[in-house]
Design a binder for these strands. Sequence first.
DNA 1: ATGAGTGTACTATAACAGATAGTACACTAA
DNA 2: TTAGTGTACTATCTGTTATAGTACACTCAT
Lengths: 125, 125
Amino acid sequence: MIQIDRFGRTPIYEQIIDQIQRLIITGVLKAGDQLPSVRTLSQELSINPNTLQKAYSELERSGVCISVPGNGRFVTESAVAVIGESMEEQIEEMKRIGKELCVAGIPIERVLKAIQSAYGKESKV
Amino acid sequence: MIQIDRFGRTPIYEQIIDQIQRLIITGVLKAGDQLPSVRTLSQELSINPNTLQKAYSELERSGVCISVPGNGRFVTESAVAVIGESMEEQIEEMKRIGKELCVAGIPIERVLKAIQSAYGKESKV
DNA sequence: ATGAGTGTACTATAACAGATAGTACACTAA
DNA sequence: TTAGTGTACTATCTGTTATAGTACACTCAT
């Protein structure tokens, strides 16, 4: 369900945040669903409970999930919307890279094709 | 010529690498040009000489510049090509973000427009 | 030959982030 | 009561980043 890359440069807690958000926007996890507990998931992933707690806290801070002490942690109704908003930042990041590629002389057609392939529109025309 | 953001998350030496590469692909620095010495530039930027040395070493490792002990450090003939190759990685990063935006349900038109605006093609049609 | 200006190497230190380890406490539901 | 939740806290370890200071070798102009 969740894969951890221990050798990459991205911190474990960030990887978890990204992957849980992905599970939500892909519909694997839906509003009201319970997230795995800190203890069980940390054991399953062989990571420290505190590391997972850090990821969960951040998800809760941004409004993706809500914790019910003594009960569990659940995906909020607004989770999909919240994550969607964070996608705006991704678009900004795209613009930033786009400007770099522009000054580097990379033709815009190459970039557009890359985007289209990511969207599964190969456009082999 | 070079601006340092001491409060951002990107390390100083990476900022220097990025900005020198930018100076080269924009033509401000050309093949054969001498880079500022470790001592002078580190004083100018108020950073440690070792930090700058780290940035320069990395630029040299990737083939952007070459050092001549006792003489100076110069932009190589292949610098532009080398930097251009590293742009391929940027395109891969774009694909990665593109896939995320795709599963998040962001319409491809929004992404394409973002790219075009980065390229200065506003396409106000 | 000398001196100024290069690059390079090395050790040491401090600060910070990331991750781990272990413990403790409060809450809820069966 | 018990098991399973979330939460809080301290302590430690590690790697990266950045700084500080020193030392040495090289090149060039004088």
